[in-house]
Amino acid sequence: MQQTALVPYARLPRAHHDRHVLASTVDAFGTAHWLLAEQAPRPGGDLPPFDAQVVSVHPGGGAVELTDLSAVRARRPRLDRLPDGGFVAAAARTRRYEDGNQVQVFDPLGRETSSFSVGDAIEHLLVDEAGHIWVGHFDENPAGIRRWSAGGALTWASDASDGARIPGLFDCYALNVSGTTAWACTYTDFPLSEIRPDRPHRPVTVRANRVRGAKAVAVHGNRVAFYGGYGEEQDRLALGELTETSVEPTDAALLTLPDGAIPGRRRVVGRGSRIYVQAEPFTAWGVFDLGSSSPA
């Protein structure tokens, strides 16, 4: 199988490497963020509310911005940035956050402005360009995929009865949010679902798909890329083309780090035509951009 290397995208400045990376992501506008703490969470123990710092590296010139967050509660948080410059941090599990404090919203100065709960078992948390918070759940929460306002109002749900239902959704494996549209690949049958909540009559378009187990998806025009899979396919990059009802495979490759190495533990984020990958020790992001690659 041919190899495709990620392109270097953003790095955590070396001056911050002495702190623990709690979470990292790339937001809707292409800025990379690292949530840092003085120490790692203790195994099996609760952290009291702690102060943390977000290091943001902007695209292009790589300008660095620092934001101090006060009294973060989640031990292993999901993180993303709001369009106004504030941040959202959420605990993936709710057992310790049953009082409505699972999701914390911070203003651009790092002060908590609101908190609410979105349900247990968060696999993905992504903020779109309009400030909606998209949450994809893994299989311990049957809610599937939902969209929330920054104030905690539920604005769309995949288990609604208005044509939004995604068949066979037990686990949101891959979620891509671009603009105000989301794309999802879900267990058990792994269809590719195009989600446009503000489109009347047909908010969800479901396409049959033969790629199983992908952890990230990217879409550009009528082209699609899936990254990941089961077992030996965890580094697979599968390419395809969209039809009205299905995804038709066109090619496949092995996606590597920029130096040609195979990543071990990794984080992945899908945004529009891009798949971002971050390998341990989680200080650098690489990117595959379907929009700049040659058609298969």
Rank of each mutant, 00 (worst) to 15 (best):
residue 46 D to M: 06
residue 218 A to Y: 10
residue 217 V to K: 00
residue 48 P to R: 02
residue 280 E to C: 04
residue 61 G to M: 12
residue 203 P to S: 09
residue 24 S to Q: 08
residue 268 V to M: 14
residue 75 R to S: 11
residue 223 R to F: 03
residue 107 D to M: 03
residue 31 T to Q: 09
residue 219 V to P: 04
residue 202 R to I: 01
residue 2 Q to A: 14
residue 269 V to L: 05
residue 199 R to F: 08
residue 105 V to G: 00
residue 274 R to Y: 06
residue 285 W to D: 05
residue 118 V to Y: 12
residue 63 A to K: 07
residue 184 A to I: 03
residue 245 T to H: 12
residue 140 E to H: 01
residue 123 E to C: 04
residue 225 A to W: 10
residue 54 V to Q: 10
residue 174 A to W: 10
residue 132 H to M: 09
residue 204 V to M: 10
residue 80 D to A: 01
residue 15 A to E: 15
residue 213 G to C: 10
residue 95 R to Y: 05
residue 242 L to H: 12
residue 231 G to Q: 13
residue 197 P to W: 02
residue 125 L to I: 07
residue 142 P to L: 00
residue 205 T to G: 03
residue 74 A to K: 02
residue 208 A to C: 03
residue 259 D to I: 09
residue 65 E to I: 05
residue 120 D to R: 02
residue 60 G to L: 02
residue 282 F to G: 05
residue 220 H to V: 14
residue 220 H to L: 07
residue 137 H to M: 03
residue 139 D to W: 11
residue 71 A to H: 08
residue 270 G to M: 11
residue 108 P to M: 02
residue 279 A to G: 12
residue 223 R to A: 15
residue 49 P to Q: 05
residue 75 R to L: 11
residue 186 T to M: 12
residue 201 H to Y: 12
residue 278 Q to P: 09
residue 143 A to W: 03
residue 108 P to K: 00
residue 153 A to K: 10
residue 189 D to P: 02
residue 100 G to K: 05
residue 194 E to C: 11
residue 101 N to P: 00
residue 261 A to Y: 12
residue 78 R to K: 07
residue 19 R to P: 14
residue 101 N to W: 02
residue 170 F to L: 04
residue 38 E to T: 13
residue 53 Q to S: 10
residue 32 A to S: 13
residue 133 I to T: 07
residue 148 W to V: 06
residue 69 L to I: 08
residue 271 R to A: 11
residue 142 P to V: 08
residue 73 R to W: 03
residue 150 A to L: 02
residue 166 I to C: 07
residue 281 P to R: 04
residue 207 R to L: 08
residue 26 V to N: 14
residue 263 P to T: 07
residue 80 D to L: 04
residue 35 L to E: 09
residue 104 Q to S: 13
residue 34 W to V: 04
residue 280 E to D: 06
residue 171 D to N: 09
residue 251 D to M: 05
residue 27 D to N: 15
residue 200 P to V: 02
residue 145 I to Y: 06
residue 192 L to W: 12
residue 281 P to H: 03
residue 113 T to M: 10
residue 41 P to M: 03
residue 111 R to W: 05
residue 85 G to W: 07
residue 133 I to F: 08
residue 47 L to T: 11
residue 32 A to R: 00
residue 52 A to R: 00
residue 27 D to M: 13
residue 165 R to F: 13
residue 74 A to M: 05
residue 104 Q to V: 15
residue 15 A to R: 14
residue 238 A to D: 14
residue 54 V to H: 11
residue 150 A to T: 12
residue 212 R to D: 13
residue 139 D to V: 09
residue 10 A to Q: 13
residue 249 P to F: 04
residue 226 F to P: 03
residue 131 G to P: 14
residue 277 V to D: 08
residue 58 H to W: 12
residue 268 V to G: 08
residue 251 D to E: 15
residue 142 P to W: 05
residue 41 P to Q: 12
residue 62 G to E: 04
residue 78 R to M: 11
residue 282 F to T: 00
residue 21 V to I: 15
residue 184 A to D: 09
residue 25 T to I: 13
residue 229 G to E: 12
residue 252 A to S: 14
residue 65 E to V: 11
residue 114 S to I: 01
residue 210 R to K: 04
residue 235 D to S: 13
residue 25 T to Q: 01
residue 284 A to F: 01
residue 290 L to D: 14
residue 201 H to N: 05
residue 32 A to C: 03
residue 111 R to A: 03
residue 26 V to G: 14
residue 62 G to D: 03
residue 168 G to K: 07
residue 89 A to H: 01
residue 4 T to K: 01
residue 157 A to H: 01
residue 58 H to A: 14
residue 34 W to K: 01
residue 103 V to F: 13
residue 201 H to V: 00
